[in-house]
Design a protein around this nucleic acid. Sequence first.
DNA 1: CCTCCGCGTGAATCATCAA
DNA 2: CTTGATGATTCACGCGGAG
Lengths: 390, 390
Amino acid sequence: MSIPRTAAAGVLPRIKVSRTGRQTPAVRVEHLLPIDQIVLGDCIESLRRLPSQSVDMIFADPPYNLQLENALTRPDNSHVDAVNDEWDRFDSFAEYDAFTRAWLAECRRVMKKTATLFVIGSYHNIFRVGSAVQDLGFWILNDIVWRKANPMPNFRGRRFTNAHETLIWASRSADARGYTFHYEALKAGNEDTQMRSDWYFPLCTGEERLKDAQGRKVHPTQKPEALVARALLAASNPGDIILDPFFGSGTTGAVAKRLGRRFIGLERDPVYAQAAQERIDNVVPLDADAVAAAPARRTEPRIPFLSLLEAGMIAAGEELVDAREKHRAIVRADGTLTVGPVVGSIHKVGALVQGHPSCNGWSFWHARRNNGLIAIDSLRDDYRARHAAP
Amino acid sequence: MSIPRTAAAGVLPRIKVSRTGRQTPAVRVEHLLPIDQIVLGDCIESLRRLPSQSVDMIFADPPYNLQLENALTRPDNSHVDAVNDEWDRFDSFAEYDAFTRAWLAECRRVMKKTATLFVIGSYHNIFRVGSAVQDLGFWILNDIVWRKANPMPNFRGRRFTNAHETLIWASRSADARGYTFHYEALKAGNEDTQMRSDWYFPLCTGEERLKDAQGRKVHPTQKPEALVARALLAASNPGDIILDPFFGSGTTGAVAKRLGRRFIGLERDPVYAQAAQERIDNVVPLDADAVAAAPARRTEPRIPFLSLLEAGMIAAGEELVDAREKHRAIVRADGTLTVGPVVGSIHKVGALVQGHPSCNGWSFWHARRNNGLIAIDSLRDDYRARHAAP
DNA sequence: CCTCCGCGTGAATCATCAA
DNA sequence: CTTGATGATTCACGCGGAG
């Protein structure tokens, strides 16, 4: 593997940006974009070399400015391996604010008028980020809470367990129209109720967590793919260009590739970039059928099937069958099923293949597990047991 | 009912505040405080009349600066009764920021050094508030998410359901020590696990929601008592003075009275103040036993290890061991332990034999009793029980 | 083969009091 | 003010080895 030569910041052509606000149509600038590449270099400088109004979505995970002073130990006296990297150190709020406004302003310029921005942060930085987002003319659509299934406890018992992080989702301006939001698909994957602003996911651990040859984590703050996937499924379409100005371990790129999106990753650390490239090279994209946006049409009741995918209990692209294995369907990434040209909820597709007016997809469909079949209903039970939340 | 005359802003005595930072001890200023009263008038002016370092906790629910442009209708074309009051209109972010910094700065002055502040808001204003909190020198302890059990749906299907609000919990400064946090009590009431930063409560509806004679809600943003109660139970003690600079319908006062706290409410709208006063008058305080905080371990009197020897509960020359009996030490008559040539406190020797930087000797060392091991910590409990002050 | 248990660890602004 | 002594404090998972 190597970082593509064209991806080096110094090789990227400098783009002329009109001062009048008139921009080259997006389709004409695509050949100027380092699509599906990792651009090595300072993120603000790299952003300046990207043409205006050229990307469809941005997912940004900037430094949090944690301001950690002292070492922290667990009650058993073991050492907590905290984020103490050079890239997370800023001398003051003013310096952090200036940095934040600089990269956000460039991001806004690079966004198509219909694009939206996600930024993730914690209480250390998210208020600075949110104020900057508003001051720069973005329009906040939602703030979203990532509730962590397994957060680190508060070892000293002096505060509440810091059990969540916050994402800001914003359009380019208050009057931006036509941004992508797959309301229907999200609803179908959420017990047929609207997807809420509080999301529940485990941390990125285990197999998913990138490790180096010595078994150490490659990046201190690698985000779970499920979190990024929900953002991309909600607010982008297959083929869209997703920009991540703080690419790190490349979660955005890996998820984008898997879901049939394209990506542009900016990263200044060659070690991170190398690890990200190898990771992405190993990603196998899902079939187009599995990621094509479901028709945004009011349909029959659908159920919380998406959560099982997000939890990794069912894989996008996996085949489901009925108990007698007479019928087959493919799971799509957004929590719908497909049989040939038909796309719909587990219930609707179950009814259709049987020629019945209705069907309980939870009891009808089965997944292959351990050389046998298991009703997805019992997978749902497992999920409930694992993720029981009030 | 009437608003107490002494509570009118114009009647409150102007307090002289030393510029040197030296302040009158809190106990001396209590008689200058409008305790358990609602102060009518502009909140910033009223705050200026309160003495410095005089309140134990602040719960603030400021205007959200909602920026609602057009009327919103539900899918059935019914009208959504949104917050559109004069007090929630600001011409710009700059104006809202100036207002926010003014009331927050006064709040900080009024807080005792051990006091903490809660502010609640939504994505419309919380980033402005959070930045101001940080800029003014507060130290954020947590951000907390109120997850709404029954949020209003997004009627247009263009965004995620806005299903949460955010609270910021902050101490007066980064080096503030001794703030109240009832860690053990919260843990005991939460399945014996730490209370997390994501809280789940229903909206304030039904009986709890104040209505006027025509059945209309008195206040557009009345908060649920359960939410305020958790904040007060977590970060205040019975008898503490809780300040609410945006008193509104008086939820903070009602909860404070019920939980045996005292309150100061600032409110500029006489209609809200009147409704709040009537509401609070009807609150019956809980028995003192029901609100007394369970004694936290760290607040219990310190017992020197020597006292256990003096009480005959441990004998000089006796052997202590750790729970797995891997380490042994001999008790010396002066209350120190010895292992070979080493002599030191129960903590020092415990740390040393384990090779740790520190150790809680009380939980590490065990004595042999009745053919088993008993932590010296439980001997200490016995000692405390025997020698408890009446 | 499975189960149990110990160990490691995660974006963390993580103590208080007396001298 | 600093310094040093005391002593309080963890949840959910994944993994690997023991039984």
